[in-house]
């Protein structure tokens, strides 16, 4: 990746993180932790790789994205707004009664959302359906998905993995947001799904392990996935929940809690500082 492009992507990621904090703050509820951990993945997908059309969100040839861990709607909405699907001003209305920005992604309400999600485990199956339809129609669009590591406790996830490998869906790339935390605590303490990479390999997936908060590593993984034929790719993205906001990092208490005014201000000033270090807006 060129230096300038990398810098731009880094700035975009900071902007998305600021939107996440502000949207959840204004909503008074929502899920900042898992939204911040997958921000870098969304940034690389939407601002470097995905073929999407903001003027025709339902373009049949577009690449698809499914936020299988639907509670991270703030990250998806912030990315879509930053991309231009709707105004970033709308993000302040997240979860409000008259807003189209539903608490969990709703494809019939929000332009750019390819699948309604929120019930864990279902999004990844839907993405298998999209990839299968793409093969059937001989289209060359690609399907990208983010799943949670807690989400992997759902049996349906493994049914989806089995089906994708069976049908050799090399047009499907899944990112596991491997942040190690779920609602009730550490995934290994609540109900360990580990060792995830070796399980994915055993399910006949192409498995790539990366630092999931490193834009270059994410970009490389996408390129490798595109070059892989005959099998779907699972990118095990080792991430930090709450990434980018010091007091949220690695704290499961920030899974589903909105910051108060003071916390919001502290988070935003940290992110502003990060933007400054990148040379400013």
């Amino acid at each position: 990746m060129e230096k300038q492009q990398l810098l731009e992507l880094k700035k975009t990621a900071v902007r998305i993180r600021r939107h996440i904090i502000d949207a959840v703050y204004h909503a008074g509820s929502g899920h900042p932790g898992g939204s911040l951990s997958c921000t870098d993945i969304l940034t690389v997908l939407y601002f470097k790789h995905m073929n999407v059309n903001i003027n025709d969100p339902n373009d049949l040839d577009r690449d698809r994205f499914v936020m299988s861990k639907g509670h991270c709607a703030p990250a998806l909405y912030a990315t879509l707004a930053e991309k231009g699907f709707f105004s970033t001003e709308e993000l302040k209305n997240l979860r409000k009664i008259d807003s189209f920005l539903q608490g969990h992604p709703s494809m019939k309400d929000v332009p750019g959302v390819d699948m309604s999600t929120g019930s864990l485990g279902q999004g990844i199956s839907a993405s298998v359906g999209m990839a299968l339809a793409g093969k059937l129609d001989k289209k060359d669009y690609r399907v990208y998905v983010i799943i949670g590591d807690g989400e992997c406790q759902e049996g349906q996830v493994w049914e989806a993995l089995m089906a994708a490998a069976h049908y050799k869906l090399d047009n499907l790339t899944v990112f596991l947001d491997h942040n190690g935390l779920q609602i009730d605590g550490k995934i290994t303490e609540v109900m360990s799904p580990e060792c995830l990479p070796s399980k994915f390999r055993a399910f006949n997936w192409n498995v790539i392990e990366i630092d999931g908060n490193d834009l270059i590593a994410i970009d490389d993984a996408v390129e490798k996935a595109k070059a892989t034929k005959g099998m779907p790719t699972m990118v095990v993205a080792n991430t930090v929940k709450g990434k980018g906001v010091s007091f949220m990092e690695g704290e499961y208490g920030w899974h589903g809690k909105a910051p108060n005014k003071e916390e919001r201000d502290k988070a935003i000033s940290e992110l502003d500082k990060a933007m400054e270090l990148l040379g400013g807006e």
């Binding site: 989400e151 009730d184 109900m191």
Partner: peptide, 28 residues
Amino acid sequence: DLSKSTKTDTFQKVYPERFFNIGIAEAN
């Protein structure tokens, strides 16, 4: 994985040996 929301954590605190978190796996 919803014990703090469903409030079964109140039971868990008193009788941890008879509380089982099955994880995000409702059918199971």
